[in-house]
Design a protein around this nucleic acid. Structure first.
Length: 120
RNA sequence: GGAGCCAGAUGGCGAAGCGACCGUAGUUCGCAUCAGGUAUGAGGAAAGUCCGGGCAGCCCAAAUAGCAGAUUUGCUUGGGAAAUCCAAGUGCCCGCGAGGGUGAGGAAAGUGCCACAGAAAAUAUGUUACUGAUUUUUCAGUACAAGUGCAACGGCGGAGUAAAAGCCCACCGCUGAUAUCGUGAGAUAUCAGGCAAGGUAAACCCCGAUUGGCUGCAAGUUUGACUUUGCAAGAAGGUGCUAUUUCCGUUUCCGAUUGGAAAAUUGCAAGAAAAAACGCGUCAGAUAGAUAAUUAUCUUAAUACAGAACUCGGCUUAUACCCGACUUUCUGC
RNA sequence: GGGUGUGUAGCUCAGCUGGUUAGAGCGCUACGUUCACAUCGUAGAGGUCACAAGUUCAAGUCUUGUCACACCUA
């Protein structure tokens, strides 16, 4: 679990991030990025979405969320790639079921590379 | 029926703070709200939402009786706050059996329905028939046999007769009475009747019992920017008193003047966006919603069904490996 | 989280108070019409009535339980 300040909470924040239209995709995950920060001190907020369409059982959906969250926690701690963005939303798509930690971590790294290239 | 894996390392998330008051209880008050340590953090079903409570609001209403209602409930005894709940029994049904199932009052209060077939499906009936007389078509007696159907006013055997029939008899079934046993549902035995009342109430309904109804924590309660409405105070002063712009006058704005427009502010009550708190507590207690990741050892293997959201009691459904107990059937020796 | 409803042919829907054979339109197939296609005409196929138990002589229909889908509610 992330710290409270790093969680993306309100409905407004979610819809603002979606409207920003900065999207990157892989087979497993879709990433919506928010605006670039003005004030560097305010924290990066991250949200995770796993819909019922992915899988109907709550246990499996929770596990997918936890795996994604753990990845992001380590990235936030060790590097400063994400510090430029106000908000990020990770949306799981159908292919992510039965994937293990390493496969998810790979695809998140690919996503972040794509995002960096796009903005340059 | 039980049980739903154990222990270790590193990093992370939730949350438990201290003192006073009171006197063992919490809708109390104050301080802190940073860091570290320590302890602790999903289930037997958390699921389905099928029942019943607690709790909250609204409606009706004053809870006694009657009437109406509940898409209520329906063998007995005991347990339980209650329940489409549990336990032990009774009857019936299914199974070779160990066992399993059971919405188990009333069809003699009334109404409806019972397709096709069949003579007739409910006021029972007389198609094919049988027997006798008459003599070629009628009359009288009968309901045994055939046939239809899920179902045809008992079954089977005998006696009896022109042929027959509970007309009579034995056994079985049915109905009633009595006795004994049992808390009871009922069981057993004896006697009597001489056979009447086809099915369906998970069709309407009748009877008994129970019970205020409806909606559900996204119920509901509080705080609230805002500025709307109402009431009160205030609004230089004067006119006997009163009159908030109404009689004069005052202040501000427009205007050369006459004249026109406006009324600061405060309190109480009502309304109310965003948001927050309460509701919400428990040796889990969140509000984008915690219990995870990596790794080592052991092991044949770490795997089934599956993730708390106001809360409790049941039911139902899903479940890998393992453990315990009692039995039945079949096959072989 | 709470509440409500719907599952019938490839698609959209009927099917009353249980009853004999489950229908309609569109689509599909074949034949005819045309030089050919469309239109039109004729004929035909296609259903475990979501699944499983029960009540009943008899269930798409009544009762109960599962499954899937949709809607309402901040």
């Amino acid at each position: 679990m992330l710290k409270k300040e790093n969680r993306l909470k309100s409905k407004r924040a979610f819809s603002a991030t979606y409207k920003n239209n900065n999207v990157v995709k892989t087979n497993l995950i879709v990433l919506y990025a928010g605006k670039i920060k003005i004030d560097k001190n305010c924290p990066t907020r991250v949200g995770f979405v796993v819909s019922k369409k992915v899988h109907k059982r709550a246990v499996i959906r929770n596990r997918i969320k936890r795996l994604m969250r753990e990845n992001i926690r380590l990235i936030l701690k060790n590097s400063s790639i994400l510090d430029n963005y106000q908000s990020l939303i990770f949306v799981a798509s159908g292919g992510i079921v039965d994937k293990n930690y390493e496969e998810i971590s790979k695809s998140i790294l690919i996503l972040l590379e794509k995002l960096a290239n796009k903005n340059i």
